[in-house]
Design a binder for these strands. Structure first.
Length: 359
DNA sequence: CACACGTGGCG
DNA sequence: TCGCCAAGTGT
């Protein structure tokens, strides 16, 4: 029997959270039934997809990946382009490149078995502080903290951490680690994230339903919604460019592959000029065209918002006779466009061009 | 440490 | 319409 006097405040908090979790646990495709563990491969796949991405967006991708590649060895054996194509639309494409590199590293370094070791996990591509902790706790029941944005928000409030983000991250991480129970660390990690996602929300948190309401310092101080503090946001710059919708005599459209690194790295694109703050001159746009053609400016524009800038693309349509020059890129029939690794921006361009110019 | 890196949903 | 935000990592 436990001695009451030996129970720490941390143990009380983690116990209250786990009790809440047992009653409010959500069913998710990567979440095993109570008392069972999700296999490391599925934990890893879901955690990579969930980085900065909503659950609703991830679910269909997660199910398709698992169906197409049931084991990590299957991912490792697949061509990178297949992974990029399956990832298309989910965003942050470095994740897909790192996912593929990680699968190959696990096969080569660890015989195809994820290491049950936080440091070894963190050494893998695409696995950082948060994800190494999440896999350790959820897949292996290792007492490790998994402090994501949800957890940071909840912890900053319960402990009234007023240091602005991201400077407060180390402190919040330490607080998170101090709460991890030896028993059920995986459930604790998911419970803390669920609390932040459903109760301790950025705006209008449901404090009356919170298992930590009696302990929450920010609630007592009346500053819940002002935490976590963050520094003021910067303005998002605007860039423009011209994209070229080129159709050959067979009705095929020209696509190119983008360079391996950087924005939309390794993904396919409708060829375009560079994207700059200044609107390109007619001459500059023609210089940036992938082929010589008579250009027709399509009405309207394609707008897209990235994390760090906004883009407005004007579409120029042109035709080339006969079969398109294969050195210019890949010529694809419009009904086969879905087979290519086209990010959402490029799908917008496709829809716009097909609507205005036809195939 | 600051910045690059996607996308879609919501108030 | 528009700003905020979502299970972060790499450089």
């Amino acid at each position: 029997m436990l001695k009451t006097a030996s129970i720490t405040k941390q143990q009380v908090l983690s116990g209250e959270l786990l009790t809440w979790y047992d009653r409010h646990r959500r069913v998710l495709p990567w979440r095993a039934p109570v008392g069972q563990r999700t296999e490391p491969y599925a934990v890893w796949l879901s955690e990579i997809m969930l980085q900065q991405t909503t659950i609703a967006a991830v679910i269909p991708y997660f199910l398709r990946f698992l169906d197409r590649w049931p084991t990590i060895a299957d991912v490792a054996a697949a061509p990178l382009d297949d992974v990029l194509t399956e990832w298309a639309g989910l965003g942050y494409y470095a994740r897909a490149r790192n996912l593929h590199a990680c699968a190959r590293a696990v096969v080569e370094r660890h015989g195809g078995i994820f290491p049950a070791d936080r440091e070894a996990l963190k050494a893998l591509p695409g696995i950082g502080d948060y994800t190494s902790g999440a896999i350790s706790a959820i897949a292996f029941d290792i007492p490790a903290a998994a402090v994501d944005g949800n957890a940071e928000r909840a912890l900053s409030r319960v402990f009234a951490v007023e240091t602005p983000m991201p400077a407060a991250k180390p402190e919040l991480r330490r607080i998170g680690e101090s709460l991890v129970p030896d028993d059920r660390p995986g459930d604790f990690a998911q419970a803390l994230m669920d609390l932040g996602a459903t109760i301790c929300t950025p705006r209008k948190p449901s404090c009356v339903l919170c298992p930590w309401r009696e302990s929450c310092q920010a609630l007592a101080m009346g500053i819940v919604e002002s935490l976590p503090r963050k520094v003021e946001k910067t303005v998002r710059p605007h860039r423009t460019g011209v994209a070229f919708w080129v159709v050959d005599g067979s009705g095929a459209v020209l696509l190119r592959r983008r360079v391996e690194k950087g924005l939309l790295g390794g993904m396919m694109e409708v060829p375009s000029t560079g994207w700059a703050a200044a609107v390109p001159s007619l001459a500059a746009a023609k210089d940036g065209a992938p082929v010589a053609a008579e250009w027709r400016v399509l009405p309207g524009q394609v707008r897209h918002v990235f994390t760090h800038f906004e883009l407005t693309l004007t579409i120029w349509a042109g035709r080339v006779a006969g079969r398109g020059d294969p050195t210019a890129g890949v010529w694809v029939k419009p009904d086969r466009l879905g087979d290519y690794a086209l990010p959402s921006l490029m799908m917008k361009v496709v829809r716009h061009a097909l609507g205005k110019a036809g195939a």
